[in-house]
Design a protein around this nucleic acid. Structure first.
Length: 426
RNA sequence: GGAGAGGUGGCUGAGUGGUCGAAAGCAGCGGUUUGCUAAACCGUCGUAGGGGGAAACUUCUACCGGGGGUUCGAAUCCCCCCCUCUCCGCCA
């Protein structure tokens, strides 16, 4: 969330930003409520001050009669305080509800536009899309012929959107994880495997909204836990409430987790096969930085994502995400879209990674700070980025590496973990 | 899951219902001493919000795991929850 005072002092800019991001947040109402809230706070403080005075005087009262008189005075004050506090709480919760829906500010260079149609293509990877002298298959068909996935089985045990990976697809999943991990460990990331569940409080802190009609999140009944949609949630939550030593920053973590998404409201969108599923595995990068370090870190994350896909030998393009498509917490976001030869009629780019600079938006809610100079603290910046989202990386690998004979070559960098250089059924 | 013990400032750790935002120690910061390092000594040292001040600063309020309650007054008493440790049970 944004800083309350910032919103009040920059109401016009915040309102304009909301429009660009497609947020309905009522900034005017928030500003009005903040004014009332402050007045209420002053009143509560004043009542408390008086009550404290009275309380202190009771211990020093000369006699029982005076003590009783002062006690009555205290009781009356308490009644007033309770009423004033209730009003303050009401104002606080209403303004808070609005504040939570105000998205982060946007990077001045982020393309302005309502949706991904306004995304700006920045550059392409090292590799060009492959040329096939045959009609390339999509990953679903390849997977079926090679015995790599079972969507019917997934649907039987868990419903549409679930699947079994089988045979070499299992090895590819593990190889992709290991490959990404190798790159990241070499770069000084601390590898982690995170919980797949998190408290709703942590979800909120990272900007995810469990429950509600449009939620992407699966909740666990009779608990305040949800299945995570990404390790971003758990990695961000890891340091919640902490005050960090600035000398220790930046902190770079990567986390392997399963990701669970209801995909509510995405019905009808291209969803064949592994592209949009309810569960997949992901290696996620996460960083906590000083405020002046987050912009470089975002570029660094993006470069690493490029390095990972260049290493796999897959064509991709990098896009600068339009304001309307940034979601709540991101200040700026770059996506990698890999070439997927089996997608659409002649192949299409499909999103495979995403990296965001959330500036202090998540840190404020999660209360992650660092010490500034001799006195005071300030919020860190948080960044997240996909190293490898297995399901979509699998699509790209299978479709780009397919051969005329129906086999699929294993990308060079994965061979040592897959243990073979070609996937074929005889 | 059962029984017990705990959760206090960056860390360790005291704390009687009022004078406690909280002893003490360590770390940190400033300084004195010192050939250097170390040590010693003196001072300073929580977070957030509001008022005043150009500022150094000052003042008020809240915060002792979280939430409720009792009370004029709660770190201290009561209830619920979370977490940690020890023991028992169960289990991959």
């Amino acid at each position: 969330m944004l800083d309350r005072r910032f919103v009040v002092e920059h109401a016009d800019a915040v309102e304009q930003n909301c429009q660009r991001r497609g947020s309905q947040a009522d900034v005017r109402r928030f500003v009005a409520l903040e004014g009332q809230r402050k007045a209420a706070q002053v009143e509560v403080d004043e009542l408390n001050r008086k009550a404290n005075e009275v309380s202190k005087s009771i211990g020093k009262a000369k006699d029982a009669a005076e003590r009783e008189a002062r006690k009555n005075e205290g009781r009356e004050l308490r009644e007033k305080t309770v009423a004033a506090q209730a009003e303050l709480d009401r104002l606080m919760s209403e303004s808070d509800a609005i504040l939570r829906t105000i998205p982060n500010m946007s990077h001045p260079e982020a393309p302005v536009g309502a949706d991904d149609g306004s995304n700006l293509e920045l550059r392409h990877g090292q590799h060009a899309p492959p040329h096939f002298d045959f009609k390339p298959l999509d990953h679903v068909e390849l997977g079926e012929r090679l015995g790599l996935m079972d969507f019917e089985g997934g649907a039987k045990v868990a419903g549409h959107g679930f699947y079994f990976l089988k045979n070499e697809a299992v090895l590819l999943e593990l190889a992709l994880q290991r490959y990404a991990l190798d790159v990241l460990m070499r770069e000084g990331f601390t590898p982690t495997i995170t919980p797949d569940l998190a408290r709703n409080e942590i979800l909120h802190g990272t900007g995810y909204i469990p429950r509600g009609p449009e939620t992407q999140i699966y909740s666990i009944a009779d608990s305040d836990l949800s299945l995570v949609a990404t390790a971003e949630i758990t990695l961000g939550g890891l340091l919640s409430g902490e005050i960090l030593d600035p000398a220790a920053l930046p902190i770079k973590l990567c986390g392997i987790s399963h990701c669970y998404r209801t995909e509510a409201g995405s019905g009808g969108r291209a969803a064949r096969g592994l592209y949009r599923v309810h569960q997949f595995t992901k290696v996620e990068m996460f960083a906590f930085t000083l405020p002046d370090g987050s912009e470089d870190m975002l570029n660094y994350f993006c470069d690493l994502e490029c390095q990972i896909f260049d290493g796999l030998g897959i064509a991709y393009r990098v896009v600068d995400t339009a304001t309307g498509d940034l979601g709540g917490p991101a200040y700026r976001k770059f996506d990698l879209e890999a070439w997927m030869p089996g997608r659409g009629e002649k192949g299409e780019y499909g999103e495979v990674t995403s990296t965001s600079n959330c500036t202090d938006y998540q840190a404020r809610r999660l209360a992650i700070r660092y010490r500034t100079g001799e006195k005071g603290t300030a919020f860190v910046h948080t960044l997240n980025g996909t190293a490898i989202a297995i399901s979509r990386a699998l699509i790209a690998v299978l479709e780009n590496y397919q051969q005329a004979d129906g086999s699929v070559l294993v990308p060079e960098v994965l061979r040592k973990w897959v243990g073979k250089d070609r996937i074929a059924r005889d």
